[in-house]
Simulated scan of single mutants.
Amino acid sequence: MRTSRERPAGGGVGESGGSRQWARADATRRALLDAAQKVFDDRGYADAGIAEIVETSGISVGSLYHHYGGKAGLYLALWEELSDEQDAQAASAVSAARKAGEDDPIALFIEGARAYLEVCWERRSAARLFHGGEGPPGFSLMRRTRARQWIGQNNRLLRGADGDRETQVLSMVLTTVIGEAGREVALAPDAAAAHEIIEEVCRILIRLAR
Rank of each mutant, 00 (worst) to 15 (best):
R143G: 08
L117S: 03
W121Y: 11
Q86P: 05
F130M: 02
E122D: 14
V61P: 06
A35I: 00
R144E: 14
G182A: 01
R2V: 05
S140T: 14
C120D: 08
D87I: 11
R124T: 04
R128Q: 10
V177Q: 04
S171I: 00
T175G: 01
Y75V: 00
A147W: 07
I53D: 08
R144F: 11
A25G: 10
A188S: 15
T175Q: 07
R2K: 08
G152T: 08
L157Y: 03
E180F: 04
I204V: 15
E200N: 13
G132W: 01
I53W: 05
E80S: 11
Q37P: 02
D103Y: 09
G62C: 03
A181K: 01
G73T: 02
D103H: 13
A107L: 12
H195F: 08
R20S: 12
L32T: 00
R5N: 13
L187I: 04
V61E: 15
A97M: 04
S57A: 03
L208I: 06
H195P: 02
V185M: 02
V185G: 05
G58A: 05
R143V: 11
G152H: 03
D103I: 13
R143Q: 13
S125P: 00
I106F: 04
Y116N: 09
G44W: 00
R7E: 15
V119G: 02
S125N: 06
D41W: 11
L170V: 04
W150I: 09
D34T: 10
P105Q: 07
Q37S: 13
E6Q: 12
E118L: 03
E166R: 15
A126M: 09
N154M: 12
L32K: 08
L129F: 06
G163E: 10
I59T: 10
R143K: 11
R156S: 15
G160A: 00
G112I: 01
W22T: 10
V94P: 00
A161V: 01
W79K: 05
D84F: 07
R24D: 11
W79D: 04
G62N: 13
R29V: 10
G101F: 07
R30V: 05
R123M: 03
R159N: 10
Q89F: 04
L205P: 07
A88K: 12
S125E: 07
T3E: 06
T145C: 09
S83T: 14
R183M: 08
V54K: 03
A48Q: 04
